[in-house]
Design a protein around this nucleic acid. Structure first.
Lengths: 237, 237
DNA sequence: GAGCACTCATGAGAATTCTTATTGCTGAAA
DNA sequence: TTTCAGCAATAAGAATTCTCATGAGTGCTC
């Protein structure tokens, strides 16, 4: 796997290069937008990480010109804190994912893996289940149009549930993906966070989306499609 | 790079295998101690990760028999929360590093990398600078024999400073290694944590170990060996 | 149906991390 | 020497995460 990194800050660039090399990627690093676009055209990369804040030929133009050369190349953009319309602009210009600074290397690397796995255009930037909407890029959540404030952990948990909506997920799976832990925590952290989410996401609405699957774990599901299960279903308050 | 993983819990085993495979390691997985020892003897591994809690031939005997076959193989042990004497026993039996459950995959992977880099016996299990002592395995810190309680972040920061004692480290370096962030946080978290550490580590002692390097960052150094620098040095209270 | 064991929900609070604002110090220029 | 700007130290408090204990619900057995 060969990836292209365009990064202006030399220290950060070296940091990224080293980080990805330890994960056994071949990494090419440049701090020049022209060169980045030229390299990308060479057709040898499996993905590109572009910091749009370059001295030479940076910004959204860089993104556009790289995208123009390789229609299907997975592109991940690094950006500073930006407004919603800027983010939208980047997606329009062809970014597949967006990571805001400051970021953890492990997160960036996970995002790159995800991009490589599904190869290109994400289409998963916004997750929807019924009237619940989660935008990973803008880091916002809305229920029936009303926006909801979530803490980082809550957000990660909801994202995981939505990404697996309709599926039952065990506490162990949740701990692994959301907490990045290898093991069941002897405590009930997961339950507690589910409780937090329910208060913020489900309490205001008739349709409960977060369901408990007794003896197994939890499930986020629209209406009562899958598994009507027992008789009481939605009924009862 | 080929690593051997001995793990009883099938789900955890698969999780580890997948995790390390995404980092491009060749991974062999077994849940049988006999087999693990036999495989290790085969001389093809660069490192081993052993969960001592196996059904077949597990425990400290497994560790001993793997170590007997390969004197220099880097071995990392996974264990449940244990008492200090058990940990010491594991080190005696030949473990190079010890990771307690539950752990983050990223941490385990970082530890494996570190082991591979320095190839085998750690010797870095305990860090010492003057009368300050930090034991990574027991996760304890002592100053002049008196033990000090640190939070996880404080511990990680002190470990980083001690590992680079005598060197000046910038805030950016600290943020990268201790926070695993790619970027300067616009805030002064580092300063704040240095302050916490000073209170816990330096306040009770005459010899200050944590020094500020103005315009650069910080430095942990014994007495006043390196860089006597300005005239006021230690003087003044 | 009553009792029981088990699982999950919830409340409360502690520990930790992080942010912000203010104060203090240092070194350089006037 | 005085003044000033920039950097660092500190205090205070807010936000988040996590733990623990208790209470409620569920399904099983008798």
């Amino acid at each position: 796997m060969r990836i292209l990194i365009a990064e202006n800050d030399a220290a950060l660039g070296a940091f990224l290069q080293q980080g990805f090399q330890t994960e056994r990627y071949a990494v090419d690093l440049t701090d020049d937008g022209q060169r980045a676009a030229a390299l990308a055209g060479g057709n040898i990369y499996d993905a590109a990480i572009l910091d749009l804040n370059l001295a030479q030929h940076g910004g959204i133009d860089l993104l556009r010109s790289v995208r123009a050369k390789r229609e299907l190349l997975p592109i991940l953009v690094l950006a500073n804190q930006t407004g919603p319309q800027e983010r939208a602009e980047m997606l329009d210009a062809g970014a597949d994912d967006l990571v805001l600074k400051p970021f953890a290397l492990s997160e960036l690397s996970a995002r790159v893996r995800a991009l490589l796995r599904r190869g290109g255009r994400s289409a998963e930037a916004v997750l929807c289940v019924e009237d619940l909407e989660l935008s990973r890029l803008e880091r916002t959540v809305k229920r029936a149009g009303r926006s909801i404030e979530l803490t980082p952990k809550e957000f990660a948990l909801l994202e995981y549930l939505m990404r697996n909506s309709g599926e039952r997920v065990t506490r162990a799976q949740i701990v692994r993906h959301v907490w990045n832990l290898s093991f069941d925590t002897m405590t009930n952290v997961v339950d507690v966070y589910i409780n937090y989410l329910r208060k913020k996401v489900d309490s205001s609405s008739e349709h409960k989306l977060i369901h408990t699957v007794r003896g197994v774990g939890y499930q986020l599901r629209a209406h009562d499609t899958a598994r009507p299960a027992a008789s009481r279903a939605v009924a009862a308050s």
